[in-house]
Design a protein around this nucleic acid. Structure first.
Lengths: 229, 229
DNA sequence: GCAACGCTTCGATCATGATCGAAATGTTCA
DNA sequence: TGAACATTTCGATCATGATCGAAGCGTTGC
């Protein structure tokens, strides 16, 4: 019985190295990174990272772009991000009975981006607040932005039609691996994250995927969204 | 920077072995299998399979159930199936320009079940036919069953409310890794597959995940659905 | 209780691939 | 053209874990 199992194993083997897993995890914020930065997060020497990166590109998980003497790596397609999202969700399931993940970096747990939307305590808090205000319904598999939610986002200055890529789902849940609860994803989630970056409510930390919540951000998330953060 | 990367790598390593990947792939039809059957599909001796199965259970990817002298293994949660689905989708992406997958078993490519719904040429053909008849809209990320579609399924004797687990999404796309195109999943997809099994349109092959399309099935899929199969 | 059967544990062997130092390549800028 | 820098290639070493034979365990049925 020939199945896709060999390819599945091959793909998994590619992710199974801690260095490569670190690289992929780092790229989950959707932006491109240099080989040096990726070597740093993987905790290996540049030549080792180069070897890992070559494998990831060869297998089409990453694509590379030359920018002067540097090379910028990013996830090849959103499909890869979606796959990693699913794997992280399962990876976060402790075989042991549920408890918080003390081994996750506090900054990551607090606030980060997940490809293009907010995650961590912040992402879940904003999502919860929107649900409580009736802006949002979120089931494990599906999500819906209510009329109230559309109005709310519009009043914030978000044009949901703008991201053009209307083929993307407006509103979907994404299981937060650190909080073990869904947060808002899809076009609406991306729009909220964009807004937060634009208004300087959050700032990307120079290294890593975590973001810093500014003072203005705390005020905005609490005041405008009603988030308990 | 502590992230979930180590857990991600550990999880991937678990799937990275061809034997274990074969076991997981085999269990993607959602049913439980004996250790012997899983050893067979993995192509290893029973004692090696036992070792693999122990790791998968320990890491909570599988759960085991004793049935007399046998042990029945199944996927621990639908989350695992969803993760594997995502991985298979990426695994099926050839780094090389697109072409059919000659290395996939013809029976698997023809018709199989994907957790609880139809996949392969059959799954895609049924989905396409339903789309062409206006029963279904299917975007890469989302799906919608139209009023016509609901009526169509009702006339077939499908009660979409019956599966009780109404938290599940009614209609969603699932990227078919052998056809590289979406097929119908969600509660509607599961209902169609259930119906097909009940009416003996398809039969599960004793080994493997592929299903056999019966003569009556060909008539039904062509006549009732209008599928080009 | 005993035999049959399915499955697991133990122990020894063997193969794959991750690692880094050293050196080469390639790009930019002066 | 040459210097500076980012990245890759090469080569040798080393560690992890997959494998199977043999033996042990546990359940069922006579």
């Amino acid at each position: 019985m020939q199945t896709i199992a060999p390819e599945l194993a091959e793909l998994a083997a590619l992710i199974a190295d801690p260095g490569r897993a670190g690289i992929l995890s780092r790229l989950m914020d959707g932006r491109a990174q240099t080989a040096s930065e990726l070597a740093r997060v993987a905790g290996v020497t540049p030549q080792t990272a180069s070897w890992h990166l070559a494998r990831l590109v060869e297998r089409a998980l990453l694509k590379v772009e030359r920018r002067g003497p540097r090379r910028l790596y990013r996830l090849a397609t959103p499909l890869v991000a979606q796959m990693l999202e699913g794997m992280m969700t399962v990876a976060a399931i402790d075989p042991q009975p549920s408890r918080p993940h003390p081994w996750i970096d506090a900054e990551m747990r607090r606030a980060r981006t997940c490809y293009d939307h907010l995650a961590g305590e912040l992402g879940v808090a904003v999502t919860d607040a929107m649900r409580e205000h009736g802006h949002l319904h979120l089931d494990p598999e599906a999500g819906e932005l209510t009329a109230s939610g559309r109005a709310f986002l519009r009043d914030l200055g978000i044009d949901l039609r703008s991201p053009a890529r209307s083929r993307r789902l407006l509103c979907r849940p994404c299981l937060d691996w650190s909080e073990r609860r869904p947060h808002l994803a899809g076009r609406a989630g991306a729009a909220v994250a964009d807004l937060a970056l634009q208004r300087d409510w959050i700032r990307r930390r120079p290294q890593g995927r975590s973001v810093e919540i500014t003072e203005a951000g705390l005020v905005a998330f609490r005041g405008l969204f009603g988030a308990r953060i």
